[in-house]
Design a protein around this nucleic acid. Structure first.
Lengths: 110, 110
DNA sequence: ACCAATACATTGGAATCTTAGGCATTAGAA
DNA sequence: TTCTAATGCCTAAGATTCCAATGTATTGGT
């Protein structure tokens, strides 16, 4: 990520949401997609991403398909059934979090 | 905080905003105010709050006034001049962060 | 021929919070 | 009246999560 890093803790839900929207993606693609989707605001570092993907795979949240592109190997990740549940929960929490931030930023309606 | 802690990294801007809105507050008051303002969603732990207040004071962002309430001592914190600048910056970043989350949660308008 | 981009990965360390304590005063319930 | 919960301050050890740096290899453009 970047700056003083407010995004800490949000990476996982963001990735799950992305994979749900796009079906399947590979690591590098994720970093580019996030950069693009946030107009350059959020840059996921590979040192954060790859370990996370590996963990989510180990937990059964993601599954992998290897694919050969020329002489290069891509690892496509997608949500498992358990992963879809996880994703739903995570997105709700993230939405809730965003709304709570809104409350704190705009406490006028008290 | 709580849960898997999405709020990680947001504590500082939240505190600065609160202090700007309320003029001056003491630690315990902050924890209660945040709990109330977020309908119980966000519970700041004292182990996170007090070290942060001390750091911000050391950095010249906050200043302290001791006050005796009966036999008890309260430490009222308020923003310094530098703190007000810091707060403005932090709030902008937090708002920006919130908007970016919105983008990620709702990428329809692409 | 060389550099940037693509694509994977690991490692050490910094930053931030949680858990779990500790101390003292005060208000309220049993 | 005694004991618990709430008020109010605090610290220390540890977990989590991410960043920066680094490594390897292929590919496309100049």
């Amino acid at each position: 990520m970047n700056k003083t890093s407010l995004y800490k803790g949000c990476l996982e839900p963001i990735i799950l949401k992305l994979l749900d929207d796009n079906g399947r993606m590979y690591g590098y693609e994720i970093t580019q997609k996030v950069k693009e989707a946030t107009a350059g605001e959020l840059n996921i570092t590979e040192g954060a991403l790859y370990p996370l993907l590996h963990r989510l795979e180990a937990e059964g949240v993601l599954e992998v398909e290897m694919e050969n592109i020329g002489n290069r190997v891509r690892k496509y990740y997608s949500l498992t059934k358990a992963g879809k549940k996880e994703k739903s929960k995570a997105v709700l929490e993230l939405e809730n979090f965003k709304n709570t931030l809104q409350l704190l930023l705009n406490p006028k309606l008290a």
